[in-house]
Nucleic acid binder design. Structure first.
Lengths: 76, 76
DNA sequence: GGTGATTTGTTCGTATGTATT
DNA sequence: TAATACATACGAACAAATCAC
């Protein structure tokens, strides 16, 4: 879930949470992230918020996304 | 782009620019306007500003808007 | 090959909050 | 106070690509 009281935007909180899972090895290279719909439900946010978070991860080079397939942890 | 120094609000400048393209025939009846997101980037303004501009055009009967599809130049 | 479900991509609709003028 | 402008966040509809069967 996301911290409603934090001044940090939800999409940044979510991006940070996912980045942590990637850096800790919980999500490994080439492995898929949960789908947008799954992340929506797990974190209790709207799809647009999930997409903003994933966009950040993409901009940081942590993940790559393919239409119709999903988003995957980048190779290092 | 929009003129930061002008006393005219951004959304009015943008509406005028689009109206000009419609009246000049550069944007023809039934043709779609650029999306809100495209106009944001092209003119360097926020989405709310784009929406205010398009609202003006709608009030003038120059365009019609459909959810999930876009905004189109009105038939005359 | 075909159909339906899943997943991401794109678009507009709406509401709230903040800052500035 | 009111108008402008930006950012965030929700929802809805539709499209394109892929997958499962």
């Amino acid at each position: 879930m996301v911290d409603e009281m934090s001044p940090v935007p939800f999409y940044v909180q979510l991006a940070d949470a996912l980045a942590k899972q990637i850096e800790s090895g919980k999500l490994k290279p080439r492995q898929p992230l949960p789908s947008e719909s799954t992340l929506q439900q797990e974190y209790g946010v709207a799809r647009g918020t999930v997409r903003s978070a994933v966009r950040l991860l993409r901009e940081r080079g942590l993940v790559v996304t393919f239409t119709g397939r999903g988003t995957f942890v980048s190779d290092k």
